[in-house]
């Protein structure tokens, strides 16, 4: 069974058409800015800085949506809900680990995609 592609470039192409330079630069900018934000979440949760977590999740969702990273988006929304509702029943850390794992997988594929441009 083929692995599901964790992101799509259709929407980005709608912004810049066939301008490969713009697309490459934007892909690079994404990988330089969004994953580092996500990687902070575990530490912020450890420090119980809930407001900061909500600021980051709010900020990154539109960017994740540009690449239709639906699995990662689902994880982010779940984490956002747990923090916002202060839901002790759910294991926030498990979701954070899953999110980081998904982001790391995505990064590898993403970097190889950048090389195509």
């Amino acid at each position: 069974m083929p692995t599901k592609q964790p992101f799509k470039l259709n929407k980005l192409s709608q912004y810049f058409g066939n301008d490969t330079t713009q697309i490459r630069e934007m892909l690079t900018l994404f990988i330089d800015t969004v994953p580092p934000d996500i990687m902070q979440l575990q530490e912020l949760a450890y420090k119980e800085q809930w407001e900061e977590i909500l600021k980051i999740t709010h900020r990154i969702k539109p960017s994740l949506d540009v690449f239709e990273m639906n699995d990662i988006l689902e994880d982010v929304r779940k984490i956002e809900d747990i923090v916002r509702l202060n839901n002790k029943e759910e294991n926030l850390n498990n979701y954070l680990i899953k999110l980081v794992d998904n982001v790391n997988k995505m990064k590898l594929l993403f970097l190889s995609e950048i090389k195509k441009y």
Binding site: M26, L29, P62
Partner: peptide
């Protein structure tokens, strides 16, 4: 825009 990626995306698009 506080998301540098999203802000840059809009900026570059509108500068077309």
């Amino acid at each position: 825009e506080d998301d540098p990626f999203y802000g840059e995306l809009l900026k570059r698009h509108l500068q077309l």
